[in-house]
């Protein structure tokens, strides 16, 4: 597969490591009340859609950026690639 890295352009997927569902960005607050239930869902419940999926890829042998790749799991068509850091910020993550 070819991943169109937002900074580097087309890169062979062999340079990447795959992690899975991009919802792993949405880590719950560990100090919040009732966080155990939230962490249970976070750690164990994943969508596994036959179709469009947002997933995390790490450019391990490249520039070491984590990317959020929107990929159709049926056709492997990739429709969007973003820097995970930008996505995380957009989703309100900070520090």
């Amino acid at each position: 597969m070819i991943i169109h890295h937002p900074l580097l352009g087309p890169c062979d997927a062999q340079e990447f490591t795959y992690m899975g569902d991009a919802r792993l960005i949405d880590r719950p607050d560990g100090m919040a009340e009732g966080s155990d239930a939230a962490f249970h869902d976070y750690a164990y419940l994943r969508e596994n859609p036959a179709g469009e999926h947002r997933e995390l890829w790490f450019h391990e042998q490249g520039d070491r950026s984590w990317l959020v790749v929107t990929r159709n799991t049926l056709t492997h068509e990739i429709t969007q690639v973003e820097l995970a850091r930008d996505v995380a910020r957009k989703q309100g993550r900070s520090r």
Partner: peptide, 10 residues
């Protein structure tokens, strides 16, 4: 300048 895989090595 690019980093890529050569013989399994970055």
């Amino acid at each position: 300048a690019r980093r890529s895989v050569i013989d399994h090595l970055g």
